[in-house]
């Protein structure tokens, strides 16, 4: 096959196409309440299943195991621990970032799940699994009820 070493599809006879469509996503029943709590009160809630006792963060409308509706909301605080982390050197289109970004999965004691978010105010040398971190919120007037109302998590001093 003559085409086997061609890397760039534009070197072949082609027709350019476009498939972009725009979307508006609702936050959902549980999501709306979750982000309202972050926006208005700077708190991170979880939802507890009365049957199995697990507390889900972020909170959900239902327990995926018991399939019960979750009506019992609890405050899980703003401090958690780094469960795993990565240092991203590329953006979503594959281009090199000027400054690498640190992303972590942050777990909250006694809960299931956790939040994926950026880490800030941290020296790369201090990064480790298990590092205690706390949420840094945007000032209240700037919050718009989305995940970036939390600017990042920083190490607990």
């Amino acid at each position: 096959m003559a085409t086997e070493k061609i890397q760039d599809v534009r070197r072949m006879t082609h027709w350019p196409g476009h498939m972009e469509t725009d979307y508006i996503y609702t936050l959902g029943i549980a999501g709306e309440r979750f982000f309202k709590e972050i926006k208005e009160n700077g708190k991170i809630p979880g939802a507890k299943c009365k049957r199995c006792g697990q507390i889900f963060v972020p909170p959900r409308l239902y327990c995926e195991k018991c399939f019960d509706k979750l009506t019992d909301w609890v405050n899980v605080g703003t401090k958690g621990k780094v469960y795993t982390f990565t240092i991203a050197y590329i953006d979503i289109k594959g281009a090199r970032l000027k400054e690498p970004t640190i992303y972590a999965l942050i777990k909250f004691d006694g809960t299931v799940g956790g939040l994926v978010h950026k880490l800030g105010e941290v020296d790369i040398c201090d990064l480790r699994v298990g590092l205690p971190v706390e949420a840094v919120f945007k000032p209240q007037p700037e919050r718009t009820a989305n995940i970036n109302d939390i600017k990042y998590f920083k190490p607990v001093k």
């Binding site: 991203a88 970004t101 970036n148």
Partner: peptide, 13 residues
């Protein structure tokens, strides 16, 4: 779309 994509999530990370 609500919890992950606003952070700029990529498959590799």
């Amino acid at each position: 779309p609500i919890y992950a994509r606003p952070l700029g999530v990529t498959l590799i990370w």
